[in-house]
């Protein structure tokens, strides 16, 4: 049987991969996909904690699952707004490469 540590390590590795996507890639869309991976890693650790810490009635702690539901909703709204910003940016600059967007650079 997998233990809580298994789930936490897998979730941490998923978070690290998302962070690598955000830090190493230069395409705005891939950076966005990295953000989604990091949110999913947080969801995985919340669900793991909910399953391993049973409430007094011997059932998982469903507060965590409600919280995951909220995170998924906020992530969906965030993706919609972020992609609209990327499209607006592409219309203005014809690029999604972060190194071409250096107007604010000192």
């Amino acid at each position: 049987m997998p233990t809580l540590a298994h789930y936490l390590i897998v979730s941490g590795l998923l978070f690290a991969l998302g962070m690598a996507g955000v830090l190493l890639r230069r395409n705005l869309l891939i950076i966005f996909m990295g953000l989604e991976l990091m949110l999913n890693a947080a969801n995985l650790s919340l669900v793991a904690f909910s399953r391993f810490n049973l409430g007094p009635d011997g059932m998982p702690n469903y507060n965590a699952q409600v919280f995951v539901f909220f995170i998924i909703t906020v992530a969906a709204a965030e993706v919609a707004v972020g992609l609209a910003i990327i499209v607006a940016l592409y219309r203005a600059k014809q690029t999604t490469h972060v190194e071409d967007l250096n107007t604010l650079k000192f």
């Binding site: 391993f52 049973l54 009635d57 011997g58 059932m59």
Partner: peptide
């Protein structure tokens, strides 16, 4: 953290 998954009181929740 190295604990087995505790059994649920109703297996088909």
């Amino acid at each position: 953290l190295f604990v087995e998954k505790p059994a649920l009181s109703h297996p088909l929740a």
